[in-house]
Simulated scan of single mutants.
Amino acid sequence: MGKKIVIAGGSGLVGQALQDYLRKEGHQVYVLSRKEKSDPNYYYWNPSLKKIDANAIEGTQVLINLSGQGIADSRWTEARKKELLSSRVVPTQFLFSVFQHSNTLEQYISASGINCYPLNNYDKVYKEEDAYGDDFLSHIVKEWEKSADLFQSICKVAKLRTSVVLTPTGGALATIAKPIKLYVGSPLGSGKQWMPWITITDLTRMFGHVIQQELSGTYNAIANANTNKDFTEKLAKVLHKPLVLPNVPGFVLKLVLGEMSTMVLEGIQASNEKVKAKGFTFKYKELPQALEHVLKGA
């Protein structure tokens, strides 16, 4: 039997795909929106003003929070860093304040980030119980997950540490593919840094699995990891485009992106054994197969 599920941050790439998937699975899915809409599938909310439609709370069994401004949308000034953190923590704290007296909420599921582990150990495959790193992204994830844990006093809490999500349109894959299509693509920096990834298909399935199995705990949402060089080469092959330019030097990316360059010059490997031990199976585990599926529907 389907559940009443409310999604905060449901208008992004992941949120839209997740809505579609969960409805097909038979759930009643509603989205929190900062804009007033006549659509009955949307509830108004504004965490900054501490306002929310009471119907969003009534009878809700699963609350999914995908809220948060895009990490790579603009350069990391000090003001931007504060925005990135508050856009995740403040909505979570507000949601807890309005749901803490709910007598129907069974599960709270939070998006999180795979970039929470130390960046200086190339050979280590990180597990969920490993310590956070000490860089900015690790700090964001730590505070993000800490706020999610507020819900542990009222329901089960699951946190999905999402890696690079491969989607047909938009997102990181479109950004990486664009210069390759224009014949100016090349690996970044040394090209040896890891790129952990998951297809949007498997990510939405993982959310569904967490709901179906009523799981709690932290899970690495990663199908596999390839080096930046390998990822770029395999993507170019799928796109039938040559790579003719040398690697983009790391110092150039640091000049252009500032501290945000760590996102493309550093990377990690992480284990997905924990979620597999809970019965989840990935449909797309190898990069060529995943790229063919995402880009061509194969």
Rank of each mutant, 00 (worst) to 15 (best):
Q93L: 07
S138W: 01
A236T: 09
S33P: 04
F94L: 02
G26R: 08
T167G: 12
Y43D: 12
A236G: 05
S87W: 01
F96G: 15
L239V: 14
G171E: 02
K178V: 01
V98C: 11
A225F: 05
E106V: 13
I7E: 03
L85D: 01
L32F: 06
L66C: 05
V14W: 02
T227E: 07
L239H: 13
A298G: 15
G297W: 10
R205G: 09
E106G: 12
K82S: 06
A298H: 15
Q213N: 08
K296L: 14
I71S: 00
P288A: 04
L150P: 07
R23L: 06
T175M: 10
E106N: 15
W197N: 01
K254V: 13
E292W: 03
P196A: 12
K82Q: 07
T77W: 05
L235Y: 09
K283S: 12
A298L: 14
L182R: 13
E36R: 12
L295V: 04
G70L: 02
V62H: 04
A56F: 06
I109V: 15
L265G: 06
G15Q: 06
N228H: 13
N120M: 10
I222H: 00
D149S: 09
Q16K: 15
L203E: 04
F207K: 06
R34N: 01
N115G: 05
N46L: 08
A8C: 10
I71Q: 00
G191D: 05
V14D: 03
